[in-house]
Simulated scan of single mutants.
Amino acid sequence: MARQRFRLKELFQKEPQYYHATFDHITHKINAQKKKIPVVLLTDVYLVNDLDKKIRLVNSNDFKDKKGRHIVADYLWVKLTKPWFSLPTQLVPGDEIFFQASVEQYRIVRSDLLKKRDDIWQQAVKERDQVYKRWAKYTETHKRKNFQLSLDKMKAKQAAILKQAKQEQAQIELVDYSLNKLSKIKIAKLVNVPQDFERGNYNYNWYKRQGYKYSAWLAAHSMELLKK
């Protein structure tokens, strides 16, 4: 089950921070306008300073990399934007970069979270109905000195139950967090590649002229090394 990236949530709507991540590959996603846009999969995302020195995290709920080191996200999808094309060479799986970025929030739809929210509400409705049944049963067999006052108290208790349920539902957020507006992208480490593999360079002018055709070639090229 995916977990919310709470570390990024803490940085949402704050000043851009520096991050260190491992490049995986380029692919495409369909946006709201039904257009294919190039995106990059980054893994093992660390929080660092402007010198690429990792900032120590100690929360037990942190994501962790394979070595058990605390990270802000195990993976992220980010857009392939103009700053990427300033890199001196194309990246291949395993290369590491560091960069500055802002945190963005986006809506998610997950059946497990929706079920949790629905379960909270159904339980609250059940408790609300039980309050009425107990009140009604007592009213049938006992003469209340102030019927209206007891009725108002019963309704207030029902309202409090539903209010509490709504508050608990709100704590189960249907949002998560990623990185956006990447800038100052620099190479931290390049993996060794076979002699017969040519990294090549990114070309923003080609991307502007050819669009998807060029980004599709970049996507295929970023995966080519894995086939060797």
Rank of each mutant, 00 (worst) to 15 (best):
H20W: 13
L190I: 00
I26S: 07
T22H: 02
F98M: 03
L41G: 10
L91V: 14
S215H: 13
T43D: 00
F12C: 07
G200F: 04
S222C: 02
E15D: 13
V193R: 01
K208D: 03
V40W: 03
I37Y: 04
N201P: 02
H70K: 15
K14F: 04
D176W: 12
I185L: 03
W84Q: 11
T27Q: 08
T22C: 00
L179R: 11
Y19M: 04
S60R: 06
Q123G: 04
Q164T: 11
S60V: 12
F147H: 13
D112P: 00
A159Y: 06
V78I: 14
Q210W: 09
Y75L: 05
N205M: 15
V72E: 00
A219C: 08
Q105A: 12
V72L: 02
I97N: 01
Y106V: 15
K155V: 14
T27C: 05
K66Y: 09
V39A: 00
K82H: 14
I161G: 05
R3T: 01
Q158E: 06
L190V: 02
I55D: 07
L225N: 08
K53N: 10
Y207K: 11
R117W: 01
Q105G: 10
K186N: 06
L226F: 02
E104D: 10
H142Q: 09
T89A: 06
K145Q: 12
K228D: 02
R144W: 13
F12Q: 05
W121Q: 14
A216Y: 13
V72K: 06
T43R: 07
I55T: 11
I97S: 01
S102V: 12
R199T: 15
Y202H: 05
E168V: 07
A219G: 05
S215W: 04
K126H: 14
V39T: 03
R128I: 11
L114R: 14
V175Y: 03
K186T: 12
A159L: 02
K82V: 10
